Simulated scan of single mutants.
Amino acid sequence: MRKIVLMMSVSLDGYFEGPDHDISWHLVDDELHQHMNDLTRRMGGDLCGRVTFELMDGYWPTADTAPDVTPVEAEFAQLWRDLPKYVFSRTLEHVDDPNATIVREVVPEEIRKLKEQPGGDLVVGGAVLATEFLRHGLVDELRIYVHPVLVGRGRRLFPSADTLTSLDLVETHTFRNGVVLLRYEVAAGGGTHP
């Protein structure tokens, strides 16, 4: 059965975005971008909220036509276009992406059925949606990319909660730009609980 992987970038002080939705502090060089391309190539689908989808869809579908596009960016643009996307939104009425499906609610039984389908792992992104998936015990693995910066304020990836989720560290990797990947699996029997 494929897994659901929460994959997000954060600052060292735990923010996924700074004030006014600022993510300019994300340190994505060619090495880290190629790493993301390699992961995306193996993904079975992207589970995202409306805001994350619109951010990505506003740039990547045509990014490979930009005159200053790098080869690694052009590769990601193609991967993004071909990737199945499940956009969780109560308000979005239509998307132009033929590989995108609008989903109205996080229904755990439906997500589990999606996991049982063949294909690569499913990646969940966006803090609000990730929180909802964690609350329902739907996340199997976390890939947290810690950027060497203190943002100071903004939106935290993990909001306060009344639950404990036990994790097992299964991999670390330091990129040349100082970003550190921390990969955790949800501990056996250690799902979310009060």
Rank of each mutant, 00 (worst) to 15 (best):
M1I: 07
I4L: 13
V5K: 12
V5D: 02
D13T: 02
E17C: 10
D20C: 03
I23C: 04
S24K: 02
W25S: 04
H26P: 09
H26D: 06
L27N: 10
V28Q: 10
V28W: 05
E31Q: 13
L32H: 04
L32T: 01
Q34H: 10
Q34R: 15
M36E: 03
N37Q: 09
T40K: 04
G45N: 08
G45Y: 04
D46H: 10
L47K: 02
R50V: 10
R50T: 08
T52E: 07
F53T: 00
E54R: 11
L55K: 14
D57W: 13
W60P: 05
W60Y: 14
A63R: 15
A63K: 13
T65I: 03
T65S: 12
A66V: 01
P67L: 12
T70I: 03
P71L: 09
P71A: 02
V72S: 02
V72H: 06
A77L: 14
Q78L: 12
L79M: 11
L79P: 07
D82P: 00
D82C: 04
L83E: 03
K85H: 05
Y86C: 01
V87K: 04
F88P: 06
T91D: 09
E93S: 14
H94E: 12
H94W: 15
N99P: 05
T101W: 12
I102R: 04
R104L: 11
E105V: 00
V106T: 01
V106N: 11
P108W: 15
E110N: 14
I111H: 03
K113Q: 13
L114C: 05
Q117H: 01
G120V: 00
V123I: 05
G126Y: 06
G126A: 11
A127E: 03
V128D: 03
T131R: 14
T131I: 01
F133S: 06
L134M: 15
R135S: 12
G137D: 12
G137S: 09
G137Q: 09
L142H: 11
R143W: 15
Y145L: 15
Y145R: 09
V146C: 02
L150W: 06
V151R: 04
G152A: 03
G152E: 08
R153S: 08
R153W: 00
R155Q: 07
L157N: 04
F158W: 15
L164A: 07
S166N: 03
D168Q: 15
V170A: 14
V170M: 15
T174E: 09
L181I: 03
L182P: 03
R183M: 14
A187M: 05
G189M: 01
P194L: 14
P194I: 08
